[in-house]
Amino acid sequence: MSEWYETSFGEDYLIVYRHRDFCGARHEVERMIQWLDLPQGARVLDLCCGMGRHSLALSQAGYEVTGVDLSEVLLREARAQEGADKVTWIRSDMRELPLDGGFDAVVNLFTSFGYFEEDEEQVKVLKEVFRMLKPGGRFIIDFLNPAYVTEHLVPHSVREDGDTLIDESRRIEHGYVKKEIRLTSKQAGGPPRKYQERVKLYTLEDFRSLISAAGLKLEAVHGSYDESSYDAENSRRMIFTGVRP
């Protein structure tokens, strides 16, 4: 039986998340550049790059970028964008990368973490971040804030995208935030296409332990890309920055 992340990042994902824009990615990358403090031409790995929004913005900012993702559909979209030829695109599981490392920075953005059931599997990801970085290399991991998600969770929403009806149900269950997505074609009819997304809810202290277990050093936690300091109750995100010692 396939894991949810092996089936959910396909053609329908492009419909569900069409609203994610490249302009927003440029704003976020501008902030990341300040946090990373990297010289022009530095090597950056975008781990779980998706459709390549941040990889392309990092490349345009003057970095040598490699984008890695498990989804061939999302990588196809990334390769179709303007400027994509300047980025190296690789299909791989984030727990076992076909790369030798030597990167100045690794970024893992918009909750592309916590996909696995066992903590040991998440640590494998972080150990790969360690292995990819040169000594003194820096990382950013952008994760959701569990307390904020729990407090502001929208249990159910319905919207339309052209001919497609998108029905999304969300719940907190057994330490995970789970989303069920149903897509129905209004014209063609037929049964809905169903997908699940599941992310393990790690607290700040949990993350400290995971990052330490991988040999990385956590330096700061931000609550957003607008430089707000992290607040356990009110911040939308937990954005971790740190270094390989």
Rank of each mutant, 00 (worst) to 15 (best):
E120I: 09
G83L: 07
L204T: 06
T7N: 09
D104K: 01
G189R: 04
R171D: 09
S8Q: 08
R237N: 01
A105S: 12
D12G: 00
D21M: 08
V68K: 00
E151C: 11
A80I: 05
Q122K: 06
F9I: 05
D231Q: 10
R79K: 13
H19D: 13
D85C: 09
E173D: 14
M51A: 13
P39D: 07
V129Q: 02
E6A: 09
L126A: 01
R244A: 08
E6H: 11
E77D: 09
E11P: 05
Y176M: 10
T111A: 14
A78R: 04
G175P: 06
R31D: 05
Q187G: 10
A188G: 05
V149I: 15
F116H: 02
E160Q: 13
A42P: 01
V16L: 11
L97H: 03
A25T: 07
V177T: 11
E120S: 15
W35V: 06
T7F: 02
I33C: 13
Y115W: 12
R43F: 04
V125D: 00
D21I: 04
E96N: 14
D37A: 12
E120G: 12
Q34C: 11
L126R: 01
Q34F: 11
R171Q: 15
K179T: 13
V73R: 10
A213R: 14
E151R: 15
D85H: 13
E96S: 13
E82H: 15
